[in-house]
Design a binder for these strands. Structure first.
Lengths: 215, 215
DNA sequence: CTGGATGGATAGCGGCACTCTCTACTATCT
DNA sequence: AGATAGTAGAGAGTGCCGCTATCCATCCAG
């Protein structure tokens, strides 16, 4: 197919597709003439992935490029690749880290049987966690860390479901892509469902109002 | 205190504080002269809240204004106020909604005993959920909806912990603020912990590598 | 009295994600 | 064969957002 059809089938405007091509988010099509190229279903799939990363995952163009680079690497171990992807889809957070928050994270790791000393700033994920706890402290919620264990309890259930899903619905070829999509879309789904759960609890405790939070 | 000290204590540059004042994110200080104003700890607290919403919650300035407006309303019922805040901190997502995804959401509600017909597009929260499932479908993950029940199971534990936390650590005065902070910071914490759980699972299943995902 | 900070207001900047425009073609329809 | 529409590629332009810089008339501490 040519770029016009790619645009029609994906809903992405032609100039935007050209922009993504320039930015290296999409591989170039096969040139059949100096000004004619063919694109296939793989391009369409990749384009939809890009849109999902941007729209649902909230990633920047540069972030998408990082993720795709990790997805496309073939010579690393799967575990390392997953780690790289996770780093790419995790924003560390910008503020200063409260040392107490760092301690909270370390204590959390130790409670989980993590004996070796963890450098919190070494990974985007742990940095994100510490920076969130830091922010909580800065607005007066010193005890937020007490929630960590409960969160982990709930998230173990969720992570297990994620693993089963990936194992069931993806071959080893696209397991990385499934993890990316599942993680980012899952984040959004989790946000939404958590809000629904809050609304339900608030309705039970405070009464009144319909189930959905639009009033 | 004057603006310089407010800046020093919060780490926010003076021009930025002025900008927030202009945008109505911070209430004006008490003028003691035509060009002298005093700020108190309440301003500091509010400023830190704004930074937390921006940095950790990823809200835009306009979004912060909406949230603060909901936080500051005193004449509505607590339940409605919570709903308003939830709407303010939930981005609906931009793409087209797949009708099948809408059906998935409705089926989910029905499984949860929600008998009345829910208009998915009426609330940012349900719209967010539908749009995430939509995005999943568009990249070929039609079965993502199967995760919803497991997610809810995990999130019930988390929502319960959230409720206990709010009940324990906040008076009725700042219960709304606690919900906002807890929801947004909680979102980030949940993201991070879920990634840690994934890393742990991946390490167990795929072997190799250290616990933290930086490698 | 004086040097640095302040309130208030307006203008400017840098980054990002497109979007527009242009040229030189090519494909297709009639 | 001619008219019309589409295309690759590349640079410039656009609009928004979140600050940041500059200015001026004070004001206040030392």
């Amino acid at each position: 197919m040519r770029v016009g059809e790619l645009s029609k089938r994906s809903g992405v405007p032609v100039p935007t597709i050209k922009y993504y091509l320039r930015e290296g988010l999409l591989p170039a099509g096969v040139l059949t003439s100096p000004n004619q190229a063919h694109y296939d279903d793989e391009h369409l799939r990749r384009l939809r992935l890009v849109r999902a990363l941007v729209d649902v995952g909230g990633l920047s163009i540069a972030g998408v490029r990082d993720v795709l680079a990790a997805v496309d690497t073939h010579d690393e171990s799967l575990h390392n690749k997953l780690g790289a992807v996770q780093e790419a889809i995790s924003h560390p957070g910008s503020g200063e880290l409260d040392p107490l928050a760092v301690e909270d994270v370390q204590a959390f790791f130790e409670r989980q049987g993590e004996t070796e000393c963890v450098d919190v700033t070494e990974s985007n994920v742990t940095h994100m966690l510490a920076s969130a706890l830091s922010a909580a402290r800065s607005v007066g919620h010193d005890q937020f860390r007490d929630l960590l264990d409960s969160y982990l309890e709930g998230l173990k259930i969720i992570a297990q479901a994620d693993l089963d899903y990936v194992a069931r619905h993806s071959s080893s070829d696209d397991i990385i892509e499934a993890m990316v999509v599942g993680t980012l879309i899952g984040d959004t789904v989790i946000k939404a469902v958590r809000r629904l759960a809050h609304a339900q609890v608030s309705r039970e405790v405070l009464g009144g109002g319909p189930a959905d939070p639009a009033s």
